[in-house]
Nucleic acid binder design. Sequence first.
DNA 1: CTCCAGGGCCAGC
DNA 2: GCTGGCCATGGA
Length: 280
Amino acid sequence: MQKITFSNEFFNIKDTLECGQIFRYKPYKDGYLVFTVDKCAYVYQTATDTVIECENYDADYFWQYFDLDRDYQAIFNSAISQNIDILTLSATLGKGVRILNQDREEMLFSFIVSQNNNIPRIKRIIDRLSVALGEKKTFDGKEYYSFPTAEKMAKMDVEFYKSIGLGYRAEYIRRLAVAIAGGLNIKDFCGLTTKQLNVKLIELYGVGRKVADCVSLFGFHRGDAFPVDTWTEKVYKENFKGELSDREKIADWFVEKFGENAGFYQQYLFYYKRSLEKKK
DNA sequence: CTCCAGGGCCAGC
DNA sequence: GCTGGCCATGGA
């Protein structure tokens, strides 16, 4: 087992996991188990550090996964320097948030599940999907299931997907699995500009602008993607006093305003706005 | 009971 | 190009 120790000032594991970018993690011992594709890590904090424990051969993977090469002090500073009250507040409270480098395919499937859905239910559906079609693995003596491969998913019919609670999204998921199993390689999109990437993602059945932006941000690590959902739309209207009503235009407006760091700011804002609502 | 959730598709203008 | 109805499910 490998242990990675990293200052917790800009790496708070609770904030990073609960800010809405990942659906596969659960409390474990003094921290959390974090699942990605077929891998698992145990992550917890000490007074000064965040510690990642994983298999030796996964150490590089999780270093990248938790985005440990990026300077989050600089991102935090740039957010503060915008001099916008709501952004200063949410960045200060969420300064330990990091944007994970998650698996592109898993993000695509996961954020299709997310549409017009709530986070607790999204997590449950993805968990049922993994238990049903994933591979049983063990970590630290504990069983878990990998995220299923598209090949395996492509063999299932729409009734199966409805049975795990996907509702009308069942056909979106099935058709994406068939497309990937049939040769569509999402990794081929890596070299595209964010705008080109958006176009390619939106061509997929069941993927609109919001899901494409989430996949761009969380799967392709594009800082110039600003997903607009009900929460960030509220931020726009209530805190930025915006007049636009089309979410695509709101997204464009934020990217125009914040540039390469827009996605990071979006995550601070989303996490803050949603956590406020949960406290009510 | 109604309203809502990290929305997208499709038909009709 | 834009708008509105509709789409399942379950938590609040």
